[in-house]
Structures are given as C-alpha cells and as structure tokens.
Design a protein around this nucleic acid. Sequence first.
DNA 1: CGGCATCCTCTTTGATACTG
DNA 2: CAGTATCAAAGAGGATGCCG
Lengths: 215, 215
Amino acid sequence: MRSYDQYCSVAKALDVVGDRWNLLIVRELLLRGRCRYTDLLHGLPGIATNLLADRLRDLEQAGVVTREAAPPPIATTVFGLTPRGQELEAVVRALGEWGVPLMREAAEGDAFRDHWLALPVHLFLTDAEPERPPLAIELRIGEEITTIEAVGGDVRARPGPAEDPDLVLGGAPELVIGLLSGRLTLADARARGLESAGDTEALRRVRARQPAASP
Amino acid sequence: MRSYDQYCSVAKALDVVGDRWNLLIVRELLLRGRCRYTDLLHGLPGIATNLLADRLRDLEQAGVVTREAAPPPIATTVFGLTPRGQELEAVVRALGEWGVPLMREAAEGDAFRDHWLALPVHLFLTDAEPERPPLAIELRIGEEITTIEAVGGDVRARPGPAEDPDLVLGGAPELVIGLLSGRLTLADARARGLESAGDTEALRRVRARQPAASP
DNA sequence: CGGCATCCTCTTTGATACTG
DNA sequence: CAGTATCAAAGAGGATGCCG
C-alpha cells in the first residue's frame, strides 16, 4: 500500500495493515494459528493466489507474519503471527464486533468457513450453567463440521465432530448463527430449514452475553 | 470497495470501512466532530477531492456518515457521524494503539495536524496530580497551536492557544510526542531542537499511562 | 500436490483542472 | 465552498504455467 504519509498512529497502522486482504489474512492466522499457504487460500475465498503471496511478503517484512520451512519430513512452509501480529487481535476483534449487525442475512454467494465461527462464539456466547458437566453441540454447516463446547462458563468452537454431542444442528450459516445468538427462535429457525437432533434444551445453556444486538 | 463475499463479521465490517481512506475519514469525524468538506480535506492531507466526495457518499449510504445542509445563514454542508459511525471509535482506537510503536520517527514528508494529538493524548497520558489546580501546556507544532490540559486526573488536547499556559513547547511533532510520551528526556528533546518556555516541571505532572511502549 | 510467478484485463487511485 | 471532469498510473482479479 502507498503510505498515507501522515504522522498519526492510525494512519501508520493502516500503512501496514490497511491494504485489501491484509486484516483478513491476520484473521485467518489468529483463528487457525500457524498454517500452510494452501490453508490460507482455503480460508480466504476470493483472494487471488498472487495477491496472497504478495501480502504474505509484505506482512512478513512488516514484522507481522512469520514464515518457517517446516522440518524435512514435512517439506512445507508454515506461516504464523509474530507477537506483534498477535497484538492485532484487538483490531480484528473491534472490527468483528462492529460487523455483527451486518450479519443478519448472508448475501447470495457469500462464502462460509466453519472456523470463522470461533470468533463470534467466543466473543458473544457464554455458558449459563458453568457448574454443570461439559456440553457439546455439533454444527453441520455446508460440508463442514464444527463443535461448540460449553465448559465452566466459557463457550468455544473447534473444527471437527463431537465425540458424544448433546445436540446436532444442521443448516445454513445464518440460521445456526441466528439461533445461537438468540436472534431466531428454534421454531423460526426450523421453519426456515434448520435441522436438529438431540436435546434442544442444550440451547438454553448457551446464551448471548448481551440481550441482543440491535438492527 | 468490492465485497469480500464472506459470511464473517470481520469481512462484512471491512466491506464497509475497509476501503482506502475510509477509516481516516472516520478518524477525522471522531476527532473534530461535525465539520465541513473543506475541513475534512485539510485534515486528510493527500486525499484526492473526488475520492473524498466518493467516500462520503459511500459512508453516508452505509449509515456511518450524516450530511446536513446547515441552516440558511451559513449556507454550507456539515458532515458528521451517525451513532453507528461513533461505534467505530473502538476500531480506530485499536488501530491507533497498535500504531504507536510506528511513531518513533516521523518519515520525511509526513504531514501533521495538531488535532491528531487528541487521540494519543487522551489515550496514553494521565494527570499524575489530580488534586492540584488545572495545568495548561501550549504546543506550537508547525503553524498550528494546540493546548493540553491536565484536570482532575485526565489529560486532554484541544485546538487553539491557552489563556495562561504554565509551559509552552515548540518544535517538530516527533519531539513533542516523544517528550510527552516519556520516550525522550527534556535534555534530549532540547538537543534535537525542541524549544520551551515556562515551568518545565509541568511535564512531571503529565505522565504516560504505561511505563513505555517497546519498539 | 504446495508455493508461488507471469500475463492479461479491468477497476481504482491520485493529480490536476474546472464549475455552480 | 463543495464538489465534477478528465486522464495516466497503480493495483486487483482471473487464468495459467512452472518447479521442487
């Protein structure tokens, strides 16, 4: 990116991460931890491969991204965040929070990746019954399977199926997100195509931290 | 900006404010409040006037910016932030905080505007002696004059001269910022061209909230 | 395959000039 | 004052090729 040439810390920050795709690359590395070029490509649907290569170089030079050749048996490159890159979590989080009201409906053609759920789930959900044994909800969104676990007051998401899920939900991303955020009732979500199997009472335990986000 | 077409709140937020200049326009409106097109142009050195017009339209349509024709005697247009736009303060603040380590030296040719100080001053300085009467430091950076006031534990910046300043500082922005942030000693700053008049003990009262930001 | 580099087209930016 | 109009240059996006 061209520099803004302004002696202001906001402008200086944007000189580094303001370029198109840069903050989404950081999002990926924050959510997935260290991963390969191809993983990043998959997590950033729409990016051109030459742009990803360019941006990784830029961010590496700016001290945000690390690049390591994995040890011989693996023969691949692993990208990650430097400590300085990790500090961008506050920026990504603030943006993610501001963007929540824009998530009511998925636009036609919007891509979705299950690991993107990790951010909103951890930010906005809380375990209403921390003293009870762990709870697992398996989500089947598109081709991907994610597990949400409520443990000791906290709610987290991780990729992959649950061992013994209390509840399994399937359907479009906005239905699952709407249901988890409390914006949709179970009946509404079902009417719009959500499928569920198991103990739907489990949903009572997973609660939005705030009553509801306005429009 | 082209949409990222990703059903993720970070991407949706960037669809709205990720375009070049957009967050700096929001910075201006946050710092200066409602102001005119020409004020924005002045606060955003480097922006092309057609781009500013484009971006203001985009942001207005996105519900971030308001545009009002001021009542007849004034005959001008006033731009401001909607409540939704105000909520971007968390994003701008996070970026500004992340950018602080990039502010050690001003790059050759960097523009500076005095009101940009308001953000870092309020974020990073504290009044070490809240029980004492108000303190005023007048800053003369380039052509512009800004006043910093320490009152009851808080430190704030506002444009314009002080009535009866305890201290007046003059010089390049990075010297004044370095001195206020504690990165430079008074002797160092003086050696590099800072000029001061008045009670330099006043500087002891205005302190960085954290010991010092690392490089 | 994984990690790019090249080529090409299209859009956006930046600089300047001009207008109601 | 608050923009539009114009135009060259830079960047984005897509396809494809290359090399270990």
